Amino acid sequence: MFVKPAAAPALFTGPYALGTLSASGREAFPALIRRDGSVADLRRAFDDAGLTMLGVMEDWARLSSAFAELAARPSGDDPLVSEFRVHAPIAPRQVLQSGANYRQHVIDLHVAHRDGSDGLSAEEARAEAAQIMDRRAADDLPYVFIGLPSAITGPFDDVVLPAWAKKPDWELELAAVIGRPASRVPAEQALDHVAGYTIANDLTDRATVFRRDMPQIGTDWLRSKNAPGFTPLGPWIVPAQSVTALDDLQVTLQLNGETMQDESTKDMIFSVARLISYISQTVQLLPGDLVLTGSPAGNGMHWGRLLRDGDVMDATITGLGAQRTRCVAEVPA
């Protein structure tokens, strides 16, 4: 069930943001949302009836140069965003996802999964893990895997928990949206390829992360992360020039009103620039692609409380808006 955001436009930073909207029974369209909540249909603005948000990203250099002027125009009779359904802001071709990228989160995992045979106290184990994180940040490479675009859903849509998913968990993440192709770019130039940023909640079924039938294979991200609707995205793409404190954005998720994740992006082990640079050494990043940057401490496994039917997740990242999704158990056929 679609849940309209409360005063959502005021939650993004900068003069405007981009989104994908639809009116009842009508085709979704790419939109510019002003600070006052008024909406400019980008199909009309650029006289292109078939324009999508992916198309905007493919022509980012030309189209984005007109956004500031479009945002500054008097809204006049333009409709308000509250009159529309808000969809995921973009349908990407590729989704690249970073794992184990928040220092405190990985330290927590290191301590939680130790068997105690090392003879270290919990405090000593945390200190050891902290040293490992320092070495990793200095000398190692990010850990990145591939997600599926079909897992993406809107920021206010219900999330269906499949009957087979026994331990569904939340993972709130900052997502970068690529605005121009990136191949083998150095970290110093990586952010030049980013059009903007949005919010992603990368749901994971913890029960299927590891293959028990063939443990030597390791993790199974297809099964554990890519069910339909397991990646609520949006509501907005906030242009990169409006996100001035990329290394200190607060990532906050509440479950039924109780704060579960609340951490700054300064806790990242690998910066957004390093992630994009690393990915681009192998992958040809394309306009509209998503780079998810990892999730901070406070997942359900940490709290011993996983998602179930009726749960409501409220997610925010500083300056990027807010999403609200309700969990609904799958009804067996």
Rank of each mutant, 00 (worst) to 15 (best):
T316E: 11
E173T: 00
G25M: 00
A91E: 13
M1I: 03
I317W: 06
R212G: 08
G319A: 12
L42Y: 13
T20V: 02
A200V: 12
P186I: 00
E83Y: 01
A333K: 10
L21C: 02
G218Q: 08
A100Q: 03
L54C: 04
L141C: 03
P235Q: 04
V177S: 13
T265S: 14
A175H: 02
D289M: 08
A151D: 09
S271P: 15
D220E: 10
E58R: 11
S183N: 03
G19N: 05
Q216H: 13
V209G: 06
A176R: 08
L191Q: 15
V39M: 01
A10Q: 15
K167G: 00
G147C: 03
L32E: 10
V283Y: 06
S242K: 08
A23S: 08
V177C: 14
G19P: 09
L63I: 10
L285D: 12
R43K: 13
A273R: 11
T198K: 10
D47K: 05
G37L: 01
D108R: 04
L148I: 04
D140G: 10
M214E: 15
K266R: 15
G319P: 01
R85A: 07
A71D: 02
R135Y: 07
S224W: 00
M1C: 07
V185L: 01
C327F: 14
F145C: 06
Q250N: 13
E188P: 06
N256H: 04
A125R: 07
A8M: 01
R136N: 07
D247H: 14
D41I: 11
L32T: 14
D77A: 10
D157G: 02
A72S: 13
P235E: 05
I276V: 15
R135W: 08
T244Q: 13
H302M: 04
A72T: 08
L203F: 14
A329V: 05
V291I: 14
S24P: 12
I152L: 12
D118A: 13
I90R: 15
V111L: 11
P239Y: 04
L21A: 07
P15F: 09
T293Q: 03
A163M: 03
D115N: 12
G257K: 02
V95D: 11
K266Y: 09
I90H: 11
L222E: 05
K4D: 02
R73P: 01
S121Q: 09
P92V: 10
D311H: 11
M268Y: 10
A151Q: 02
T318P: 07
C327W: 05
P89W: 03
T325W: 04
R103W: 04
R274A: 14
F2Y: 14
L307K: 03
V209E: 10
A240L: 12
D289Y: 04
K167H: 02
A315Y: 10
G234F: 01
T252C: 14
T153G: 06
V81L: 00
G116P: 06
D205H: 00
A71E: 03
A245Q: 09
T265I: 13
D247I: 14
G310K: 01
G154S: 10
Y143P: 03
F46M: 06
T265N: 05
